[in-house]
Structure formats: structure tokens, C-alpha cells
Nucleic acid binder design. Structure first.
Lengths: 195, 195
DNA sequence: TGACCTGACGAACGAACGTTCGAGTATTGA
DNA sequence: TCAATACTCGAACGTTCGTTCGTCAGGTCA
């Protein structure tokens, strides 16, 4: 039933590479097998069901998001600086080259019906952690005195997330313009929040 | 090859009803046929290919969006008031009850790989008309003196669209909170743009 | 009445889907 | 060295996919 760990990791990496080209709907066992050079049954044995595979892919994407965006930004102790770092890292994450589609997590959250019910719920749940995390950083920045005391942290987080989503939506037709406008929007957001 | 026009319209309406539940990936000929009570071949004859069907569904969604959001707002001659109307109508469109998923156009744009290449391009193209339209209204509001002269209309449109996307993303987990925050975000956007 | 045409039908096609199973082939531990 | 274990394979399952085809009822107009 269970497969070797390195092989499993290789499968998930292939899945993440395939995802921008095929989407979750096109992430079938057969196609993923031919992509990795394995047999359908050999690949399938690592997961046991389509739902488990989808959830594993979503969690793998989340792990990479954390490693690329969340964790590096935590080097900044100063919360206002950390938020600016988060914005920059997220922007790069969303528009990094060789990416036909945006963040797999965003894709998963919007194409939820293409996924199993359980996998869709997992995607939504993982994504729903982001805005509260941003709100917490903003709240901390307020107590540190960097942000004005009457700032609505939840609204700040909402706007923060909104900019990223708009980038993801526009990056497919003009990544350059999307990034440019997002930088301006983030700058505006930070300026408005400053004490 | 071609089917009767009323039947075709009935099929498209069924497709739009099914879309929030099944997504584009689940919008198969067989399922749609059983939904409408027709045979697969009878339904298929109206379109001739899966791609044509998907494009027809996307265009039907766009037509309903225009009828529900764009057109009613044009009753407002005053551009600043029209933009506020657009925000309110769009917000309702995105969170109207009985809608598991947001605007089919947003869904189509993000799950594009679940669609035929051609249909995905159609969806992206239709959606890409929105931001420039908003920018044009904002530009007009500037010349009317309602908005400040140094407003970046493209950035305004970007932020406008971003709020809607964030609503669509959050509406799946908490529609009430999403709408509430979006109203605040729109108010903030309009206040910042005012002369 | 008879010749059309339209629109929907049932049956069937090859392909791909998720999934199961039993047989091989390494690698391991005693 | 031998048995056990871990991993992968090919073959096959039943189902559904998009698509094609021939047929047949119902209405139109001569």
C-alpha cells in the first residue's frame, strides 16, 4: 500500500510541475504516471485513492508556500518590515517565471468543484489561514507603534489578500503590468496603515 | 446539427445552475443531459463539440453579468455614482444566495486548464474587459471633477477588481464577513479617490 | 398525399477514468 | 543462504468521457 518516501516526494514534485499546465481537473492518475515514468498502479499504490493524492498535492503546495514566503519573512523581527517582506515574497511567488497558472492554493480554492469534496475543503481551509496571519502581524505592528492605532487589522488583511488575488488573476494575461500595479497598491496600503 | 433556440437556451440555463455545484470540470455532456432530461446525443447536437458548449456557457454567464451589473449601473449618468452602483451590484452578484461558487467567469478564469484551451482563452478575454471598463469610468469621473485629478485610474481599477476577487475567495467560507469587509474596502477606495 | 426538413432519440465507438489484483523484483534482516 | 518485506509492474475491472451514426416522429409546404 505505502510507497517509498523519496518516490512519493518525486511524484508530488511532478504533480506540482504538471499542475499549472493541466489544472486539478487534468491531474489524473494516468497522466501523472506517464509524467513520472511510472505505471498507474505503481503510482497509485503510494496514495490509495484519488482524494488522498489531491490532498497530498495541496499540502505539498502549502509546504512550499510556507518555505518560500512565510518562513523567510519571519527573519524580520519588526512587524511592519515583515509585512513588506511578505508582500514582496508573495508577489514573487505569484509571478515567478515558468508558472502558467498562479499559486496552486488559489487555483484549488477557486476550482474547488473540480476536486473531491474533501480535497476542496482542505484547500479552502489551508488558504483561510493566510488572512488571519496577516491580520495578526498588522495587530502586532500597531502595538509596536509602526501602524496607527485606529487601523482595522482585519480590513488591512482583506486588502492585502485582495491585491495578491488580483495579481493572480491578471498575471495570466499580463504578468508585468500586474506586478507593477500590485507594487503600487501595496505601497498605498502600507502608507495608509503607517502611524 | 443545430437545435431549436428555446431548447438551447434551456440547456445553457441548466448548465449555469449546475456550474456552482459541479464546476467546469463536472460540466460533462452526460451529466448535463440527465440534468435537463435530454439524451446525450440530443443535447450534444446543439453544440457539436465540448469546446463550443463551454464557450456558450461562458458567454451566457457574461450576458447575465452584463444584464445584472453593467447595464443597470448605466442608469447613473454621474460617473462617481455609477462606480458606487457598480460596486454594490457586483457585490450582490458575487454573494447572491444559492450560489456555491462565485461568478462563473472568475471560476473559469482561475480553473482555465480544466477547460479546453480555446474556452479558457475566451473566459480570460471576457474577464479582461472589466478592469479597463472601470478605469474608463474613473477617468470620466476625474474629468467630471468628482475624483481628484492625480488619481491613477488604472490602479483604481486594479484595486476595484481586487476587492471583488477577495470577496469571491472568502465568500465560500464566510459570505457575511466577506461582504461586510468588501463594503468597507469599497468605501475606503471611493473616499481616497474623491476630489 | 407525399417530399421535405428539423430536432431528438438509442446504440455504439474508442479512449481514459479510478481502482483492484496477483505476480514479479529488488532490498533487507536473521 | 533463505525467508520476509517493500516496492513496482502489467493486466484487467466497470464506468464515464466526448463523439458519431442511423433512425424516427412532427411540422411545413407543394
Amino acid at each position: 500500500m505505502a510507497g517509498s518516501k523519496p518516490t512519493r516526494e518525486r511524484i508530488l514534485q511532478s504533480a506540482l510541475d504538471l499542475l499549472p499546465r493541466a489544472g486539478f481537473a487534468g491531474l489524473t492518475v494516468g497522466r501523472l504516471a506517464s509524467e513520472t515514468g511510472m505505471s498507474k498502479s505503481g503510482l497509485f499504490g503510494h496514495f490509495g485513492s484519488q482524494t488522498v493524492l489531491q490532498i497530498a498535492v495541496i499540502e505539498a503546495a502549502a509546504a512550499r508556500f510556507n518555505a518560500s514566503v512565510i518562513t523567510p519573512a519571519q527573519d524580520e523581527a519588526d512587524k511592519a518590515a515583515r509585512l513588506e517582506q511578505l508582500a514582496a515574497l508573495w508577489l514573487y511567488w505569484l509571478t515567478r517565471p515558468g508558472l502558467g497558472l498562479p499559486c496552486p492554493l488559489i487555483q484549488a480554492a477557486f476550482s474547488a468543484p473540480g476536486l473531491t469534496d474533501e480535497a476542496g475543503q482542505t484547500a479552502i481551509q489551508i488558504r483561510s489561514r493566510f488572512a488571519p496571519y496577516i491580520a495578526r502581524q498588522a495587530e502586532a505592528a500597531k502595538t509596536e507603534g509602526a501602524y496607527r492605532a485606529d487601523l482595522d487589522a482585519a480590513l488591512f488583511a482583506f486588502s492585502f489578500e485582495a491585491i495578491g488575488l488580483a495579481v493572480a488573476a491578471q498575471a495570466m494575461r499580463d504578468a508585468e503590468a500586474a506586478r507593477h500595479r500590485a507594487e503600487a497598491a501595496f505601497a498605498h496600503l502600507f502608507a495608509d496603515a503607517a502611524a
